[in-house]
Every structure is written in C-alpha cells, then in structure tokens.
Write a protein that binds this DNA or RNA. Structure first.
Length: 577
DNA sequence: GCCGTTTTCGGCCCGACTGTTTTCAGTCG
C-alpha cells in the first residue's frame, strides 16, 4: 500500500515548510492529512476521486497530489522543496526541544548542516555564542542529541500499560492524591506508545509533584511545575503528570487522552458553538461561565455529542459518526464467551487441558478451543495425526464429565512454505475448528505469501486465519501480504480472521480490523494462550477490535457454544458444497 | 491547505514550562 509512503511525503513537506517558515496553517493541513493517510485501512490506490475527498483533511489540492503520486511515483512540490534544504537539516527537527525556529537559526547563523555538525559544535561550546543560546540551551541540545541517537522509538503497549499503572499505583499511596487516571495513547489502547500521560487531582499539588519527580522509577526529571511535570524513567520512557483542580478532572482527562486531532476537532466545534474548551473545562466564549469539566462526559454532552469511547478518538470519522448518531456499539469484554486459540502441553503450551479449562472458567469463559500446533512445526512439538486422535478422546472424556464447560477440539495448522496444508481434509473434517497459520517462509514475496493464505481460506475446513500478518511489535516486521485480497477472499469463503490478543502481536491491527468490519468479515479475538496468565491479555485483543469500530456481531467468539458450533459446521462450511 | 446551521473568504485549539528575558518567543503536547 502506498498510504504510508504518501503520509511520509506529506510529513516531509510539512517539515521542510516549517523549517522554511511557511504559513503554519498550511503546514498543519499537511500534517493532519498525513495522519489520516496513515490510519486509513483501505489501499489509497483503490479509492475513487470522490472517496479521496471523503478522507478527513483531504481536499481538492491534496487529492490531486495523492493522484499525482499514484500516477508518477513522486510529487513535484515535494521534489522542489527538497532542493531548498540540505538533506541533513530535517534530522535536526527530531531533536527534542529543538524546533524549526532554532534549526533555522543554527543553519543561518551557525553554519550547521547536519546532526554531526550540531554535535561537534555543541561539544566544542560553539553554539553558546549564537543569539538566544546560552550554556543551558547548549546542554539541552546535547541531551536531546543523546536521545535521538538512542532512537525516540515507540514502545509496545504491552510493556507500557503495566508500567503506567505501576506509576499510578505508586502515586495512589501519596496522602495528597485524590484521583488519578492513565490517559494518552495508553488509554486509547494504541498498539505502540511513545510516552505515558497521567492526570490527577490533589489536596496539595506541590507535594504531589515533588513526590512524582522523586519516584524511585525516575531516572531524570525533565521539567517540574505546579500543574505539569515531566520525567524520564527506565529505557528513556517519558512520563507526564498533569495535576488539576477537582472541577477540571474530566476536561484534563479528555485533553490528555487525545488524540491530538480529535481534540482539535472538539475545540473547533466548541468555537463554532460560541464555547471554549481547555484542559480546565468547557466555558462560554469569554471564559466567564463554567459549563462543565469535572467529568469527561460533560464535554461531549455540552457539544451535543454522545460519549465517544477513547479507543475511537483518532479523528478517523468518529466525530462525523457521533453527529450522525452512527457510532458503533463497541464489543466489550462481557460479550466474549470463549477463547478459540489455546495451546496445551501436548505441543508448546505449559498446562493440561483440565488446568486450562479451570483457568478459563475462572475468567468467566464458557468454552475454549484446544488448538495445538500441527506436525510440521517440530520446534513447537506439533501433534501427529495419532496424537491428535488421542487428544480427541481425551477432550470427549473431559466434556462428558464437565457439563458446565466445553472444550472444543481444534488445531493451529501450519500453512507450509509451499502453500500446502499440514493435515489432509479427512483429519480436519473431524475437528470442531481449524485455525490456519503461517510460521515459516516469512521472507517470501508478497504474492506468494498472499497465495498461501488464500489457498488456506479456500480449504472448506479452515475456519480462522491465525495472526494474519505474523508481526511481533518491536521485534519482527509483518510479512508482506496483500491484506485487501486476504479480506476479500475471507469475505467470499466465510473465513474468520484472528485478532491475536498477545500484546506483542495484536494481529490483525486496528486498521485491518476496521476494514474487516466494513466487509462483513468476522474476527475471532483469541489469546493464543500457552501459559494460563496469557488468558489475561484478552483486553488487548478486545481493544484492537474496538479501535477497529467492531461490534459484538462482528466477533465470532461472542457466540454461545451452540450458535458457534452451528456457525462452524454450517455457515462457515457453506463453501464446501 | 481545509472547510462551512455565522462564512466559498477568512478563519483555523489552547495552555504550561523553559530560558533568557524585563514582557516573551520557542517548543511541546
């Protein structure tokens, strides 16, 4: 998909224009368009001119530039702008605390052309002579440079969410704390996260802030104020704490939850209604009368909108949907009845089926599917056909003596490197469900991998495609795959796609999940449990579905056991006739 | 460059912290 490339070009246009001092509103338009391109589930190349214009932030001009890129492989305006700026200059904007104005100053007055120039000049104290730059500013630049070198990367949600709650718990012990919530992209359950945002109210803000910057987890305080402080904790993760008055908690929570463009849209709406929104509340235009702000819901209510769940707040059409009364009724944890992807110790899991069933029942589920690996995945001790039959008898025995809970018998069957499936049809026929997954040949070309998945979906016994892109966030890129084609064949064959809830997978991602919903392709939210604690990752998978605008009806494992089996034996297998 | 129940022109979200500054610009979120 060209979406990401176009987004990158728009961002670079904005960067260069900012460096060159262009109109800030034009620059913002490019940045907003870039964000919306990134979040677009559909391949931009498949959209009509009219559909392009429906993307928020894309108007006549930018639509033309997108089309220019699709036709010619480049955008003339972008190529021209690149002539105007030494290639190393844009890297300077990545230094925290160093913005376009300072970059320009360094370029014009300091002869700086690249990060290397900057580092040399700063370490030789040659910057301090420049206007507006004294030794403190020079120190900040050096520190910023160190951060850039380490990479201002995004971190997996699965590592950041627990850290955020750990910090919030630590602050809860403080006597001056009243309320505290984790906000930011963590509250929106975005799959990767750059920093941690906390919002609190306190009987003694000064004391709470002092405690915050002195937490044992803190490696270095960055800024320290009465209402806002920033620290760095391990791995260079940035944590912001905002402390506001009780009457402002909801407004601050909304403000800090973002996403930025969602907030901009809300504030814009407020202005049109003669109101003003800030992190302290929602007010009449002159700020003389407070209309609300203690609870987040008030902001939306006063704007005449239904409450918009944090997972939807990305400026991806949720405000338009809210205005039209067309917000989805997002799937919730309570809707999930079972887990369709669980490994026992027969392959690479750690527990007996009794133990797994007990753990699932304790978590409120009424069924699980045992889906151990198939014979070719030797490193995961994949089951032979004989072992599969043995497991079948074991499961039948369990179900006979445990009427309140059901174990379904399935397999996570390998899609082999050459596209064949690991078990013949007469073995698959006797199973309750079949997940087909790719565990090898990740480096094959896109066409070949897509063809393997398509072939698996065309098999009449395959119910679900497991972790459809194979990614491990921060560790392994997704394999190349034509997701639109996969979704199309899933639609045609009635195959479900998995949302694997394992926090480093989250695969499908949110954009593809949303596209699945649009096409009427069912998803299965599964934990891929290997040890029982993995069951507790279910909320991560549910969050992906919610970020993809999915409702209960889009999710296979919201069905009760009877309906599910009917669907697996009937609907899904219509393709067999 | 986008956008419209005030507008097809003229707006475009809002505030905290820092550093070098005597009143504010730059940066960030």
């Amino acid at each position: 998909m060209k979406n990401i490339e176009i987004a990158r070009i728009f961002t670079e246009i904005a960067d260069i224009q900012e460096f060159r001092g262009y109109d800030i509103f034009k620059i913002r338009a490019y940045r907003r368009a870039a964000l919306n391109m990134e979040g677009l589930a559909r391949d931009v190349a498949t959209l009509s001119h009219k559909e392009l214009l429906e993307i928020p932030g894309i108007g006549r001009d930018l639509a033309a530039k997108i089309e220019e890129y699709l036709d010619t492989g480049s955008i003339a305006v972008h190529e021209q702008l690149r002539q105007d700026v030494p290639p190393g200059m844009l890297e300077l904007l990545a230094v925290p605390g160093l913005g376009p104005k300072t970059a320009r100053l360094l370029y014009e007055k300091g002869g700086i052309r690249s990060l290397d120039d900057l580092e040399r000049a700063a370490s030789e104290h040659r910057l301090a002579g420049l206007p507006k730059i004294r030794s403190q500013a020079e120190q900040n630049i050096l520190r910023g440079l160190a951060l850039v070198k380490r990479g201002r990367e995004r971190f997996p949600l699965g590592r950041m969410l627990p850290l955020a709650h750990e910090l919030a718990e630590e602050l809860r012990k403080h006597a001056a704390l009243e309320r505290i919530e984790v906000a930011g992209s963590i509250r929106r359950w975005k799959d990767t996260v750059r920093d941690i945002d906390l919002v609190a109210t306190s009987t003694d803000p000064a004391a709470l802030m002092a405690a915050f910057v002195a937490l044992p987890q803190v490696e270095r305080p960055v800024s320290h104020g009465l209402t806002k402080s920033t620290v760095l904790v391990r791995h260079g993760v940035q944590v912001d704490l905002r402390v506001v008055g009780r009457e402002s908690f909801g407004a601050a929570l909304a403000y800090l939850t973002g996403a930025k463009n969602h907030n901009v849209r809300l504030r814009d709406m407020a202005v049109r209604l003669g109101l003003k929104i800030n992190e302290y509340g929602i007010f009449t235009e002159k700020g003389d009368q407070r209309l609300g702000g203690e609870e987040e819901q008030e902001i939306y209510r006063i704007l005449g909108l239904p409450f918009i769940e944090p997972e939807l707040r990305e400026d991806r059409g949720e405000i338009e949907a809210a205005l039209a009364g067309a917000l989805p009724r997002l799937v919730t944890k309570a809707d999930i009845r079972g887990d369709l992807h669980v490994h026992s110790r027969r392959s690479d899991g750690s527990h007996s089926l009794e133990k797994l069933a007990e753990a699932a029942r304790e978590r409120g589920l009424s069924y699980i599917a045992l889906t151990d690996h198939s014979r070719s995945l030797a490193m995961a001790r994949g089951l032979t056909i004989e072992q599969l039959l043995e497991q079948h008898r074991e499961i039948e025995a369990f179900n006979r003596s445990n009427p309140g809970f059901t174990i379904l018998h399935g397999t996570e069957m390998d899609i082999l490197g050459d596209g064949r499936l690991d078990f013949p049809d007469d073995v698959l026929r006797d199973l309750d469900l079949v997940i087909a997954s790719i565990h090898s040949g990740f480096r094959q070309p896109r066409e070949q991998i897509t063809a393997r998945l398509v072939a698996a979906m065309r098999n009449p016994f395959v119910s679900i495609i497991g972790h459809p892109t194979g990614r491990l966030i921060g560790e392994r890129e997704p394999y190349p795959v034509d997701m639109e084609e996969v979704l199309r064949v899933a639609q045609e064959t009635g195959t479900a796609l998995e949302i694997n809830a394992y926090p480093l997978r989250l695969d499908l991602n949110d954009a593809s999940a949303r596209r699945a919903g649009e096409l009427g392709v069912a998803v299965a939210i599964n934990t891929d449990t290997h040890v029982i604690d993995n069951f507790d990752a279910l909320p991560y998978g549910i969050a992906v579905a919610r970020r993809g605008w999915l409702e209960k009806g889009n999710v296979l494992n919201t069905l009760g056991k009877g309906e599910l089996l009917k669907r697996l034996k009937g609907g899904n297998r219509m393709k067999r006739s």
